[in-house]
Design a binder for these strands. Structure first.
Lengths: 152, 152
DNA sequence: CATAGATTGTTGAAAATGCAACTACCTTGT
DNA sequence: ACAAGGTAGTTGCATTTTCAACAATCTATG
């Protein structure tokens, strides 16, 4: 299996990593400066926000934010300690637990959103044409496809 | 300053985050399975490898791998403990320190490269046309531009 | 040359992350 | 119904990352 890779291809990959790190770092700094929840917390909370009943099974939530189950447990502990979410039992499976967005969690989302949105626009969207936006969406979806066999 | 953001734009952004996390996770897992250095270590070592004299000032290295100076200090401590790099004094600035790639560090790079390259191809390059590769390079460079005022 | 202000890199403590082991529970096959 | 094996989530611990404070040194200005 030949896995040759050209310098140009490697450059693209490395720019991908660097661009990501730089953008996240910048936006996270802006959120912190505004006294908002960090980006990673936001991602978790917003998944709950969009889910039916503002709740998701722990494992499903972990999958969505690309975390191990144990990492999510710890993160959820912190969020719960801050009152941003609570856990709830699952009627149909006594092992299971829902993570449920709390009222405070929703407020935290609303508070952070303007800052976050501004960051996304200024550091990301702003630099892209509509075609590029569409192309990026296609590409990222394609990259994720192998990892998500059925559930699109 | 209107910072409106469309659902499609937000989707692109979120796919960016998710795709990145997924790819890194996958490649890191493969490196670990092969008993190689983790991706983050690799990134640091390869910067040194490409630098003149296999060495870089700590602050410059930190900038390149998008880490805070203090985080890099700790990371360099670990790499030094593993014998993958060493520190050296700077003649012209007695505060300064070089991080220098060691022979062992170079070996670690060489050992990890095939695994890493395979991961990059299989999870990233493989899914992209040549045009897309070029387009991504342009885009990521553009995204990074604001952060690097002069020095391209 | 003296001093105020920046910059370099490190430190120690706190927070976050990941791994392996564990409990509790569900599912399957017999 | 029961054992074997799988899954959900948590726990403790070790590793990694971040933050604020610090000492040492450099630089610029008067």
């Amino acid at each position: 299996m030949r896995e040759h890779i050209t310098p140009a291809q490697l450059t693209t990959w490395r720019l991908f990593i660097t661009a990501h790190a730089t953008l996240i770092e910048q936006i996270d700094r802006e959120l912190a400066a505004a006294g908002c929840v960090p980006l990673h917390w936001y991602d978790v909370l917003v998944e709950l926000y969009e889910a039916p009943d503002r709740r998701l099974r722990m494992a499903e939530l972990a999958r969505r934010v690309v975390l191990s189950r144990s990492s999510l447990t710890h993160l959820a502990d912190r969020l719960e300690r801050e009152g941003l979410l609570r856990r709830a039992r699952v009627d149909t499976d006594r092992r299971g637990a829902y993570a449920v967005l709390s009222e405070q969690g929703e407020q935290a989302l609303r508070r952070a959103w303007p800052i976050y949105a501004r960051g996304i626009v200024q550091h990301f969207i702003r630099h892209l044409t509509d075609e590029e936006l569409q192309s990026l969406t296609d590409i990222f979806q394609r990259l994720l496809m192998p990892a998500t066999p059925v559930n699109g």
